[in-house]
Structures are given as structure tokens and as C-alpha cells.
């Protein structure tokens, strides 16, 4: 029974990690930037969602607002900040360092702004369903309507993303621009605009991850920092480039953490996370779920 319970909690945490992981992969594969600012984008989007929930008393409006805000913030960051950065920084080792420093800087700025507006104290979001677990006979599962909602919401958004990527023109443009910006440009595709759209999609995924994450915990300016770490490790497990890998990585990490906590100790969350990260980097640096032989650069 413990095995099954742990599996259920792993499913629920894993799905949120997947979403954050997807948000990071979407930006990485189209711009080769590890977007540390995503923790800030997600937290700001979640605050927007929180405000809407407070005003409308509707979790669903808040969820939609968080996704729209996330998309807008992502697009704005790319349009006004990353584009200018890449126009100026073109060659030399700084090309590798500049985006990292820039997104870390953005993270600090966004968190400071959210702290200034909303304060540093914890806010809570009332989920639309009860947080308790389902009961079977006299046993209460560690998995209830809220967990189910999270898993369903994540699954639906992953399906929507998959349809966008595999079945639509903009999805083909996104894939082509990610694999080869040069060939895409030479084929007449506006790669810059496509990238901004990728940032917007990523922001929406981050906003959704954020609001689902805090519906189970609390919202403060640093609420997404750990989620960023988990999302990043999930993305690395999945090979950074692959959306399916990102999802699989999220579930692998979610399961691993929950099993380590259940069977070893609650202190095992971060040791497990980084042990997996290091093992993947040492044994299969291209990621467990990538088809390519090595990392593309």
C-alpha cells in the first residue's frame, strides 16, 4: 500500500515538475538560453492569478490569468531584453555567459518587484476542490481531488502543446527555428518572432505550473525557486532538447524524490535530486530520453 501511495504522490509532484521542465526546455531549444528568470516569471504570473482569484473568487479565472500573464511576461522579456542582448553579444566566450547572467539578473529584479508590491509574507490560494485525499473503505489516500486536478491540467496542457508542435504551422516553424535558425531564415521564416512566441508559450507553462504549485503550498516571491531547480534537473534528465524528455524527466524526478522521502528520510529531497542530476550527467549526458548521441550546440 505504501508503494501505491508513494506512486500517487509521485505522479502529482512529477506532473508539476514536468510543466516547469517544459517551460525551461521551450526556451532552451529555441534560443539556447537556460532561463533562470522563469522562477521569477512564474511567481509574478502567479501573483497576477492570485489577484484575480481574490477579486473574482474564481480559481479558474485566476488560472487563466496566470497563464496569460506568463505568456505576456515571457514575450516581453524576449522582445525587449533577450533580442537586444543577442544583437550586442555575438561572439567570444561571453556568448555563453551573458544569457546566464542576464536571466539570473532578471530573476533578482522580478523577485524584488514582487516583494515590493505584495510583501514577503505567504499568501495562499484556495483551490477549487478539497485538498484532502480520496478514501477507499477506511483508508485515506495521499491523493485527492486537487492532485487529480493537477495531473489532469498538466496532461491536458501537454496534449495541447503536442498538438501545437506536431500539427500546426506555427509548431513546424518552432521546431525548424529550434533545429536550424539559419535554414529557417533562408526559407523565409521570421525566426525572431517565432522565438518570442516560444518564450510566450514557455511563460504560459510556467504560469500554470506556478498556480498549481502554490494551490498546494504557499505563495511568496521565492516560492518558485525550488520548483525551478526541480524543473531544471527534470529537463537535464530528459536531455534538455526534448519536450517528451522534459515530461518523462519530471515524472522520474517526482517519483524518485517521493520514494526517497517515503522509504529513507524526509531530508532526502535535495540529495536525491542532485544525485540523479550527477548520475545522468556522468552516465548519459545527452539525457535519458534524447535520441541524439550527444548534446547539440
Amino acid at each position: 500500500m505504501k508503494l501505491f501511495d508513494t506512486f500517487l504522490t509521485g505522479l502529482s509532484t512529477g506532473s508539476i515538475y514536468s510543466l516547469m521542465s517544459i517551460a525551461l526546455v521551450l526556451v532552451w531549444r529555441s534560443t539556447r538560453v537556460i532561463n533562470f528568470a522563469q522562477a521569477g516569471q512564474a511567481v509574478l504570473s502567479t501573483y497576477v492569478g492570485y489577484e484575480i482569484i481574490v477579486r473574482t473568487n474564481s480559481f479558474w479565472f485566476g488560472l487563466i490569468a496566470a497563464m496569460i500573464a506568463g505568456a505576456a511576461i515571457g514575450a516581453l522579456i524576449d522582445f525587449f531584453f533577450m533580442r537586444a542582448l543577442f544583437k550586442r553579444v555575438k561572439s567570444g566566450p561571453i556568448v555563453l555567459v551573458a544569457p546566464v547572467v542576464a536571466t539570473l539578473g532578471l530573476l533578482g529584479i522580478i523577485q524584488a518587484i514582487t516583494g515590493f508590491i505584495w510583501g514577503l509574507d505567504n499568501k495562499s490560494i484556495t483551490p477549487p476542490v478539497t485538498t484532502g485525499g480520496f478514501t477507499i473503505g477506511d483508508r485515506t489516500l495521499p491523493f485527492g481531488p486537487l492532485n487529480l486536478l493537477i495531473v489532469v491540467a498538466v496532461t491536458v496542457s501537454l496534449l495541447i502543446l503536442a498538438i501545437i508542435f506536431q500539427r500546426t504551422n506555427i509548431g513546424l516553424s518552432l521546431r525548424a527555428s529550434a533545429f536550424s535558425p539559419e535554414i529557417s531564415k533562408l526559407s523565409g521564416i521570421k525566426v525572431d518572432a517565432i522565438r518570442t512566441f516560444g518564450w510566450a508559450l514557455s511563460g504560459a507553462a510556467g504560469g500554470l505550473a506556478g498556480i498549481l504549485f502554490v494551490s498546494n503550498s504557499a505563495l511568496n516571491p521565492n516560492a518558485m525557486d525550488v520548483l525551478l531547480v526541480f524543473g531544471f534537473v527534470s529537463a537535464v534528465i530528459g536531455g534538455l532538447d526534448s519536450l517528451i524528455g522534459a515530461v518523462a524527466g519530471g515524472f522520474v524526478l517526482g517519483m524518485a524524490i517521493n520514494f526517497a522521502v517515503a522509504y529513507i528520510d524526509t531530508q532526502m529531497i535535495f540529495p536525491t535530486t542532485f544525485l540523479i542530476l550527477i548520475l545522468v550527467l556522468l552516465l548519459k549526458p545527452s539525457g535519458l530520453f534524447s535520441r541524439s548521441k550527444g548534446r547539440r550546440d
Binding site: F179, K185, L186
Partner: peptide, 29 residues
């Protein structure tokens, strides 16, 4: 490219990860 000046770069410039049809479809987007 949209104005009809098409450059076919060297190194057999195709996107290996996309199908033949997808490669050919890029300018139709």
C-alpha cells in the same frame, strides 16, 4: 527569401530532424 532571393547553403542544407515533407513545407508557412 520572401522576395524570391533563395540561398541554398553548402553542406546539403536540410533540417535532419524534420521529414522531407516538413523541410519542403517551410517556405509554404
Amino acid at each position: 527569401a520572401r522576395a524570391g532571393i533563395l540561398h541554398v547553403a553548402d553542406g546539403k542544407s536540410v533540417i535532419a530532424e524534420l521529414s522531407v515533407k516538413e523541410n519542403l513545407s517551410l517556405p509554404t508557412l
